[in-house]
Design a protein around this nucleic acid. Structure first.
Lengths: 213, 213
DNA sequence: CACAATAATCGATCAGTGATAACTTATCAC
DNA sequence: GTGATAAGTTATCACTGATCGATTATTGTG
């Protein structure tokens, strides 16, 4: 491993934002390849082709980089949830499809998902103060879309429970459980993944909706 | 903060194991108070009253300390699950009670729970190689108890699905979702906790069991 | 074209991290 | 006493995220 540092040419004067994107791109790739905690700021900087302190011109903190990635990823989720909601009618099929959107997103964006819902917060509130709950709030946007869907199901008289908040939180927790375990423990002797997901979604649907089992 | 280092007297010759316990005790308290990632080996050592390198006479790695704490905590869970299974008869009440045991355990031992199921593994396999999957395996012991309970329910003809593995994994994921979210995101505007737990358990029960909604 | 302004970036450095090596000290059996 | 050895030490390493102050390169202006 020679690892001569190859420097990227300095950006023209107004183009700092471009470098910022490069940093986010490099970070995303590294995180996906090696996991969140094992990637250092120096590795990110080297991948971009700049010095390590240069990162701090664009991000106050390493956590801010992950937070931004996370927020962007969740914007995509909200988008997908809205798409699912656009052609939503209160049926079992539509309902399951919406759940499936969430699961697929989590498994396709494991790093963002980790940062948003699985990363340790630090009981002293450190994490919270630095990065805010911005990533989580972004995730909550998706949660709200879920609440709307659940509300529609309730209004159609299809749910067991009438309290939408309560039901949505429970449903969300149920989905999150599968997604986070598949992400955190890929080596567990899981039943075939597609089968498991289908089975899980059916279970949640039965738990929320009245009618045919 | 003066923080004069107060040294604990050297242990007699055969009593190294006692120091080991002291380390685990101190670590558990610190982890509970400040969270896992924010506690350093130096802090643990100071709490015990020994030098930082002295830790490494008892544990090869910082992760090994958390792993041991985790394994011990999960031994308790297995114990409780076995107790729940001892006076188990295939009824809705007993089933829900068993689920409740799991949730209560997770919320009472959040740090152990984190290490076992929520801590990042490192895609390069670092975490796995050092600490093994010993903590997770300890957790799996509890999972097996669940499987047995589910099997009893199936044999009584009460479940929707006949595949015990599949159902148990799904059920476990559902429980884990609530526990892990409550641990990781305590600040989320949750519905009142007891209500939420009860609601979630009902949902999972409806998802798994046939019969009355 | 020269020049000041400034965005972009760098090298040096800091305190803190987990971990290791080499050494000391207390305690024990004989 | 005298070795052997468990228990613990200090010094140090490579690495981490982060800060400081200086240094480029570029730009619009005179």
């Amino acid at each position: 491993m020679t690892a001569l540092k190859v420097r990227s040419p300095r950006k023209p004067k107004g183009q700092g934002a471009e470098r910022r994107e490069e940093i986010l791109d490099a970070a995303l790739k590294l995180f996906s390849a090696k996991g969140l905690h094992t990637v250092s700021t120096r590795q990110i900087a080297e991948a971009v082709g700049i010095s390590q302190p240069a990162l701090y011109a664009y991000f106050a903190t390493k956590d801010d980089i992950t937070a931004e990635l996370c927020i962007r990823a969740f914007a995509i989720l909200v988008e997908r949830m809205e798409a699912a909601r656009a052609d939503f009618i209160p049926t079992t099929q539509c309902f399951e499809k919406a759940l499936r959107v969430y699961v697929d997103f989590g498994l396709q964006n494991p790093d963002a998902y980790r940062v948003a819902f699985m990363v340790e917060k630090g009981l002293d509130g450190t994490y919270k103060e630095r990065v805010g709950d911005r990533p989580m709030m972004a995730g909550i946007g998706a949660f709200q879309r879920f609440a709307e869907i659940v509300a529609e199901m309730r209004d159609a008289g299809l749910t067991h429970d009438d309290d939408v908040q309560r039901m949505t939180q429970t449903l969300w927790a149920g989905l999150h459980g599968l997604v986070s375990l598949l992400i955190a423990r890929p080596d567990f002797p899981w039943v075939e993944r597609e089968v498991l997901i289908a089975c899980h979604i059916s279970l949640l649907r039965r738990g929320v909706l009245k009618g045919v089992g």
